[in-house]
Nucleic acid binder design. Sequence first.
DNA 1: ACCGGTATTGCACACGTTTGCAATCCTGAT
DNA 2: ATCAGGATTGCAAACGTGTGCAATACCGGT
Lengths: 350, 350
Amino acid sequence: MVSIKDIARAAQVSHSTVSRALRNSPLVNIETRALIHKLAGEAGYTVSAVGRSLVTKRTSTIGVVVTTIADPFAGEVVSGIEEFALSHDYSVILAACHADPDRELRAVHSLQERRVDGILVMASRIGALYLPRLSGMKVPIVLINSHHPGEFVYSIRIDNVDGARLATKHLVDLGHRRIAYIGDRFGFQSDMERLTGYREMLEETNPGFEADLGFEPDLVAYGDGTPEGGRQAMLQLLSRAARPTAVFCYNDRMAIGAMRAVREQGLRVPRDVSIAGFDDLFLSSYTDPPLTTVRQPKRDMGVQAGEILLQLLAGEKPESRVTSGVLVVRESTGPPRSAASLRSAIRSHG
Amino acid sequence: MVSIKDIARAAQVSHSTVSRALRNSPLVNIETRALIHKLAGEAGYTVSAVGRSLVTKRTSTIGVVVTTIADPFAGEVVSGIEEFALSHDYSVILAACHADPDRELRAVHSLQERRVDGILVMASRIGALYLPRLSGMKVPIVLINSHHPGEFVYSIRIDNVDGARLATKHLVDLGHRRIAYIGDRFGFQSDMERLTGYREMLEETNPGFEADLGFEPDLVAYGDGTPEGGRQAMLQLLSRAARPTAVFCYNDRMAIGAMRAVREQGLRVPRDVSIAGFDDLFLSSYTDPPLTTVRQPKRDMGVQAGEILLQLLAGEKPESRVTSGVLVVRESTGPPRSAASLRSAIRSHG
DNA sequence: ACCGGTATTGCACACGTTTGCAATCCTGAT
DNA sequence: ATCAGGATTGCAAACGTGTGCAATACCGGT
């Protein structure tokens, strides 16, 4: 592998001069600089980041911790991170922890050894095991929609309460009285917040707890975040005495499973049950019917996380940021049928 | 940042001994080794990969070039890569090229500077610009389902011809006579191969080119790989005089768009038109109806790509590998209606 | 001729680690 | 007592790069 010294020999100068020339330092004569660039080009020389890092004590590298990159949500956020990184001459080192304590430890340890300049964490669950290791590292850490905002100072997250209110209000405005929530049973902070927004909106709309509107524990079911989990939760809701006419789901994946459950019961979306999700995944606009959901600015959140990290690296004290979701109304939500027609529809199917 | 020398000072030994002790070399006394481990633990020492890389000339790092990590297919493959990497003490550096020549160049250049030990490329289109740069690098490169197998020796890919035959045969066996293909207009090698498999199967089934079965250029349409592209292509096919009763799509994303187009025309899947895809994305089993498709072993392909790379790094000469897709029959395909009933269905809608 | 100043270059060290080689110490056998 | 040999340790070089400082050369002004 050709190094700076080989170029120096070829150009009959010291390696210091080569180093300076390649970084376009004004300290070096314009002609020698040109010569060195020419020789370096011919020799196919590329500066070694490892040599450089050793002296500069910076690797221009950021670690991204993610539960799994196969999650389409994570993919889009990381895509934003990567875009930001590339445009600022940083590289992204991926570390998937798979919610597995052993892998978490190994992944973070590896980032530590590689001396990343900073870390972005998007794992919804930050394991108790590697949390101390993370905070023990001397590098800045920015959390993205994560669970432990208290432990770490800097984060970017979506306003879950507001987003949930948006979705719930939409369902209320359509005329629904019995609106259910399918949450994530792992009890992430984000789930708590979305539940809060859902609950707030219901209670505000109906301060006196009139019949058929207001928060009812019976109208909350839990899945595991996957379509199958959403399906199971929806089946539960449908089997209860007073079924909901609309459901707000913690995320799009469960909403998709919920739609399937509705179909399996011979009912139709949104005619019999309206369904709204959260996230707006790439494929959510291609479900049948297309899914009403709260869009998270995923790429942008990745970019903003990068910006916060950069400020941190520059020694500034950035504010944590909160972005807002926007309600995307598609065709999975609509006005409720009257109770009578719903009953007859069920009878004709059963 | 605490270095090996700090530990050496604390342990009253030379830094060489510390280095050896930490790597559990038998050359160092068992007690001093224990002492050093203890001190290192207390000091929160982690070896610096950059210092090490400088002398070992290996970074234990592999670069992954991908069009965009937001693509769910890429996400799953990268997930497999990451898993493999972690279990072999490698780290993954992500480089997204976004099919943009400028970014391609910058991304690959960055991998070069970082001295990755090897590169995995999964961009369906390898830009002419950075191709030479790639091959100019002295590191082993493994292609995943990529376009230029000729340029690079090592690759892992799916047997597209076979997979397409599987899907097409399934449709033929169901009784379809007019089977269309929606391809990718960018003309990737994989598209050519899937078209070939589709065509082969049709011609084998009907060597004499009888009416309504066999390859017909009229039954091929092209999209851009996205759902919207698939939708457009499907609309084209539906507007032709003799419509297909079944469609095999280049990928699941276009198949999803095609299903939407069918619905938009007031037709039903699979009653009026059967649709099959390719890839088996995570969400493909949750479309309505669930999509029949050819599953690619995505994670496994990532793992296998890693294995090939590792063999290369060990100086071996691995074989390129070809994996097989498996047909996953779901509910988007079924026997065709008779031509008569199809016509009446269309009349009643139009 | 001398001086101050600027432009250009090289020297030498530093960064953190690995490793070949030499040095030292100790043990047991002769 | 001597020696062979093993166990343990340190020395020193090397990896590729950046940079403070000194050195040199040159220029213009007096």
